[in-house]
Write a protein that binds this DNA or RNA. Sequence first.
DNA 1: CTGAAAGCGCTTACAG
DNA 2: CTGAAAGCGCTTACAG
Lengths: 339, 339
Amino acid sequence: MKRPTIADVARRAGVSKGAVSYALNGQPGVSEATRQRILAIAAEIGFNPSRAARSLSGATADAVGLTLCRPARTLGIEPFFMELISGVEAELSARSYALTLQVVADQEAEVAVYRRWWGERRVDGVLVCDLRADDRRVPVLEELGLPAVVIGGPGGTGGLASVWSDDAAALVETVEYLVALGHRRIARVGGLPALLHTEIRTEAFTQVCRRLGLADAVTVPSDYTGEEGARATRRLLSSAGRPTAVIYDNDVMAIAGLSVAQEMGLAVPGEVSIVAWDDSPLCQLVHPPLTALGRDIPAYGAHAARELLAVIGGAPARQVQDGTAHLTPRGSTAPPRAS
Amino acid sequence: MKRPTIADVARRAGVSKGAVSYALNGQPGVSEATRQRILAIAAEIGFNPSRAARSLSGATADAVGLTLCRPARTLGIEPFFMELISGVEAELSARSYALTLQVVADQEAEVAVYRRWWGERRVDGVLVCDLRADDRRVPVLEELGLPAVVIGGPGGTGGLASVWSDDAAALVETVEYLVALGHRRIARVGGLPALLHTEIRTEAFTQVCRRLGLADAVTVPSDYTGEEGARATRRLLSSAGRPTAVIYDNDVMAIAGLSVAQEMGLAVPGEVSIVAWDDSPLCQLVHPPLTALGRDIPAYGAHAARELLAVIGGAPARQVQDGTAHLTPRGSTAPPRAS
DNA sequence: CTGAAAGCGCTTACAG
DNA sequence: CTGAAAGCGCTTACAG
C-alpha cells in the first residue's frame, strides 16, 4: 500500500502543504473552516505525518528511551520492570510518544547507547534506572544535554531531574512493626550492593536497629535472584542466634527464603517472620501469603514519564518525591514464638 | 552539546558529504585509504548519522515494533514477556535495530497503532504476540504490507511469517508422563480461551485423553492470573472424583494452585500432582519445586526477531518451527497415592 | 488568512 | 575514484 503524504492531503484539499501542516499542528494560519476540512481529509485517507520528515524539520523525535541492565532471566522474573514500563507507557501513549527499549550488558554499554541515541536524535530524552553511587551515566547525560529523569535517589543525580521514593522511611516502618510484634533479632537480605537504594536501605536499617537497641542488625548482600535469596536465608537460619524475622529486598528472594525456612522445618511465621519488599501478586500466591512493602509501581513509572516529558518541554530539572511504600501485614509475620 | 553532522566529518576529512556517506555505509565509491580516514574522523568526533535524515532518504527506520496487550499488573507477573523481549532485544541490538514498545488496551487499539506506525514510517516491521483464532490484526498487516512475524501458531497467520512451537506435542508428552505415573484423572487449568495456542492445547488435551482412555478430561478456562488459577483449582479439588493431577497453562497459576492444594490439606504430590507450563525460575522457588514444561523463551524471541529482520530484508514469509517445550520433572509430580 | 520557498541531514543516481 | 545536485516529507519564517 502506498503511504499518503502531506502533498496528497494538500492536493485533495486544494491548499498548500504549509496550510496542511498548520492545520494538523493546531497552528494559526488557516481559517477554522479550512482546518476542519483538512483534518477530515487527513483522517479519511489515513494520513500520518512521517516521523523522519517531522523530526528532520526540527521537531522532536517523539520517542523516549529506556535501557535495562539485567540478564535476560532475572529481568523476566522481577515484576518490577514490566510494571514500571507499563506505567511509563500509559503516560507516553496518551501523548503519542513512543518508548524505545534497549537491554544492555553493563553501564559502559548503556553510556554508549545514550551517546548513539543522542547523536541519531533517536529519542528526545531518557529514563534512567538502577542508580548507583557515583553513577557514570549522570555526568555523560549532563554533558550531552540529553533530557533525563533518574528513577531513584534521593541524591546522586547531579543536575538531572529525578523521581524518588523514601525507602529509608519504609524500612524504618517495617523494623518498628517487627519490634512491636516482639522481635529483637532481625536480619535483612539486601539487593545489589552497588545500587544506591540498597545503600540507602542498608544505612537506614543499621541506624534504626541501633536506635531501637537491637543487637546484631546483619544485612547479607545479594542480587535479587531466588538462588541467592535462598542461599542467604540458609546461612542466616542456620547460624547460632538465628534471626526471628528477615526482611528481603525483593519479593522473589522472600519467596525463596520462605521455601528454605519451610524446608528447614522452621514454621513461618511462628519461628521466622518474613517481610518482602515489592508487593507484586506473587506475594499472595504462596502460603502463608507474605507481608510486604508495596507501592504502585505503574504509577511511579507514569510519574517519571510525566517529569521527563516536562523536562523535554523545557521545564527545569526537579527532584520529585513519589509515594512511600507501605506495609501490608499478611500471614508471614507474627510475634516470635517463645523458645 | 552540538551534534556533529555529516558535513562536519566531510569538512575535516576534506571530502564531499557523499564520500562520507559511502565510506560509512560500506559502499563502493571511495578508496580504502579515504574510507579509513573518514571512519577514524567520524569515530573521533562521535558522529552518528541522524536517523531522521537517513530514513527520510529512503533508508529503513532501523526500528521494530512490539505491542503488548495485557493490563499493567498481569504483564509484570508473567516472566514470559520480559524474557521474550530480552531475546528480541539481543538480536536487534546486534544489528543496531531499536525496539519500540507499546502497551495497548485491546486489539482495536493495537490495529490503530500498526496503522500509525506504518504511516509514520516509525518501524520497519512488527512482532505480533497473542495470536487469536481469526485474528483481526493479520489482514490489516497484510493490507498495509508492513513486514511482520507472528509469534505463535501454527496456522492462523495468513500470509504472514511466523515462528511457532509445537504445544500440542508438549501437552501430549505431559499427559503420557502423568499416565505412566499411574494417573487416570487429569485436569487442566487453561489460559485465555480466545488465544489460538489455548485452543491448540485444549484440543490436544482432549484428544490424547480420549486416546489413552481417560474418562473426564476437563479443562477449566482461566486468564493466567494467580487469582483465577486459585479459583479454578479450588473448584477442581473440591469436586467429587477430584483429579489426581492438574496441568496449568502457566507457572503463576500453577503456583497459586499449589498453594490452594496445601491450604486444603492435600499433599503435593501425594494427593495431587502439579505440572506448570512455562518453566521460569519461579517454579523452583516454591516447595515442592514444580514439574514444568519449559523452553528457552529468550531464544524464541531472538528467533522471531531474526525472522523479522529477514522479512524486512526482503526474504519470503516463512512458517518456522521453534523448539518444543520439554518436561522437567521435579517434586510436584509423583504416582497418585492409593486412596 | 494563504502560498511559495528554504532548509533539516542524509542517500544516491549522475556527471566528470 | 570523487564532487555537485536532487530529493526524501515535513516545518516555518517570509512575502503577499
